[in-house]
Design a protein around this nucleic acid. Structure first.
Lengths: 186, 186
DNA sequence: CCGTTCTTGAAACAGTCGTACCATATACTG
DNA sequence: CAGTATATGGTACGACTGTTTCAAGAACGG
């Protein structure tokens, strides 16, 4: 008896809140502007999520989920050579459409460095779908226990993303990836 | 005539404020707690720096200045081989003592992505002493106009720093640098 | 209809924020 | 001493924060 709960509302709000955070970033996120943009109220946000902190956690989880999904859809074919996969992933993740994700990714990383206590699952929360990404390089190794080459490949991608987002110099960063591929061939 | 100005006060405050920001980060920086920690008052901070924004700019400039100085003091000798210099720089910048600098560096980068308008000098303000660092790799090139190899080297350092700061896995990141050096030798 | 549960608005609370205003204290010149 | 400039405390303003409280509305079962 009683009015039945409506979980769809929370879900819809979460989806739109995630859009909003991807567009505006985490640092200045505030309940009142967010609520206004979502045509709801701070009251309802707290009713659905309990607290701002929990809302943020939910949004970050949703963003990760989306990133992983989009990535899975666009991964280069299994059959492709390691180099082709590396180039494919770079092309995908460095595309302008991914900029909001990348921005949020770096923002969370920085926040995690300042407040590790907010990210009990450290590596997971922060690197998550980046790990998914790294998993595709499992066979660019020197052996079954080689975690080193994937680490290096991921570092190159992250480092070049960092460069690209600050300088905007696409040609130079693209060329650097070419150079890395060249090194890897030997 | 009149009481003579005392620029030393502003300088001393700037130095201590920089310590504070390196220790506590930028995101939650607030005048009142900062003033309390420096045994001064918000009133004086504004008197000396004009506004919080200008104070932050001054602190970031000071942090960059320090980083560049410390780096210059610890750069591997000119005579060293490129590989030795790369290893030396990695050892220096990945040392725990540098963690506050690295943290602030990533924080500024993330903030710059969200608010480019606050960083009119983009690449300079953000990468500055990282560029100083990159300059030492000028001769790991394929020719005089090769900006690509330094870009790649810097990307590896930044990417591995990112990894190290999130996962804390020093061995794996050190090994990845070894692997990169190995690739560079061929 | 009643009772129950979920939903929602309006307002207020207790705090922090950067900053401005006003007065006063301090240190110097002439 | 007066005059003048810097230095500094205290206080308050207005805007914003996340959150709570109180009350009413809305949708269901019996």
């Amino acid at each position: 008896m009683g009015r039945p709960p409506n979980p769809a509302r929370r879900e819809a709000t979460l989806a739109r809140a995630t859009d909003y955070v991807l567009a505006h970033g985490l640092a200045e996120l505030s309940l009142r502007p967010l609520a206004a943009a979502l045509d709801t109220s701070p009251r309802m946000l707290l009713y659905d999520f309990g607290s701002k902190q929990e809302l943020v956690s939910a949004v970050l989880a949703e963003a990760r989920r989306r990133g992983a999904t989009r990535l899975a859809e666009n991964l280069p074919a299994e059959a492709a050579s390691p180099e082709e996969r590396l180039r494919g992933i770079w092309a995908w993740i460095s595309a302008p459409e991914r900029a909001p994700f990348v921005r949020l990714f770096f923002e969370v990383h920085a926040d995690g460095l300042a407040h590790p206590e907010n990210y009990p699952d450290r590596a997971e929360a922060i690197t998550d779908w980046f790990n998914t990404l790294g998993a595709t390089f499992r066979d660019i190794t020197t052996g079954p226990d080689d975690t080193v080459t994937p680490t290096l490949v991921m570092a190159v991608i992250r480092g070049l993303l960092f460069d690209l987002t600050t300088t905007g110099d696409r040609r130079r960063t693209d060329d650097a990836l070419d150079r890395f591929c060249e090194l890897l061939r030997h």
